[in-house]
Design a binder for these strands. Structure first.
Lengths: 205, 205
DNA sequence: ATATAATAGTAATAATATAACTAAAGCAAC
DNA sequence: GTTGCTTTAGTTATATTATTACTATTATAT
């Protein structure tokens, strides 16, 4: 691949380039830093292998290059990678795109909303109740990451957490409102109602 | 694969099963229905092939099965699929999970936020301005899908759109606030400032 | 009559997710 | 002092999804 077009951007790929901006390092070290700094909240490194895979393709696309492979006395062998000029440019270009252009992504929850009538109203109420509990728990978890360091480290380094928190709060609010409508019967369906709707649409499509 | 564990859920896979709940049909027809009903807002079918691929694995996992392949007079050959019992159960199980359990997903924007200092404050301000414009445009696009049918079709069938809209509004609000802080200088960085921070952390880690 | 769009599906590759490994070293407990 | 668990560093293999590019037929518009 001659890389006329820019290499594919992804959270993991950006994180790798961003880390190599600091200094050359080996994949396992990147993994450690991502976790230490809690960037694993926004970059999926649950499976460390995706990091190795991503690094392979960044090498192939010449955004990074192998600097050396060394064996620090009692540790396993390490392959140190460094940024190339192209990698530096690409990282900045990705940042510009990611900030300026909303990506179209396909999260799961809205899909389930799109097919709600597969379940009964009662069951949906129960399930959304459980979701709310988990959302609340997640909100508390994030807050616990933020509050202890507030004032100690600049807000600049907490922005992604604040964003996640804001999204969480907005989802909680929305689900709560939906639950309200379901409980009040403002939104309702059952077998008979659904059939009557189908009839209606057969007449005037 | 003996499918001890449940097959992997995904937006496309759920959409396929949900459509087959209505009646047996062929992949291309599913694609048409998804687009007609605007479910492509929440299910990625930009590349029709992923639909065929997903269907292949659903067949392999015995959630659906080939019913017949027919040649309607002047049309290309069609392969009609139908739900199996296992498919019916699985679809319901997926719905329950997707409603009750928030998935951990990794959207792009928060990652860019996590690495903001790679760019200058000025550039970030410009870029976020552009993002806001696009978010506003997207918001208007979604509203234009909702408003004309409001009152004509039940809210139940607009829930995923309403959710997307709520998320959009919350993001717009958050980005606007961030832009405010950047313009006022409440949040600020530059070369010198970043270096001083690094020094600080060398002393007390 | 011819170009373009719609219909239905196939082929091939790249990227990512997921699980299961190897192998050496460090450390704690018994 | 050796047994067992954790950490370090990386590899192998497979499944799934994204992306591009095809084929071939029919419908429709110019």
């Amino acid at each position: 691949m001659t890389m006329k077009n820019e290499a594919k951007k992804s959270p993991v790929a950006l994180a790798v380039l961003a880390l190599l901006f600091e200094e050359p390092m080996h994949p396992y070290r990147m993994w450690q830093l991502i976790k230490e700094r809690s960037k694993d909240e926004v970059v999926n490194v649950r499976y460390r292998n995706t990091l190795y895979q991503t690094i392979d393709r960044l090498v192939r696309d010449e955004l990074i290059s192998e600097k050396e492979t060394r064996k620090e006395d009692n540790r396993p062998e390490q392959t140190i990678y460094q940024l190339t000029d192209r990698g530096r440019e690409t990282a900045l270009s990705w940042m510009r795109q990611m900030l300026a252009e909303p990506a179209d992504e396909f999260p799961e929850f809205p899909v389930a909303l799109a097919y709600l009538p597969m379940l009964s109203v009662e069951e949906v109420i129960t399930l959304l109740g459980k979701r709310l509990e988990k959302l609340d728990a997640e909100k508390i978890r994030i807050e616990k990451q933020i509050t202890p360091v507030q004032g100690k480290i600049p807000r600049l380094f907490l922005l992604e957490m604040e964003f996640i928190l804001a999204k969480l709060q907005s989802e909680i609010k929305w689900v709560r409102a939906l639950l309200g409508d379901l409980n009040e019967g403002t939104i309702y369906w059952d077998e008979a109602w659904l059939n009557s709707i189908i009839e209606q649409f057969k007449n005037k499509p």
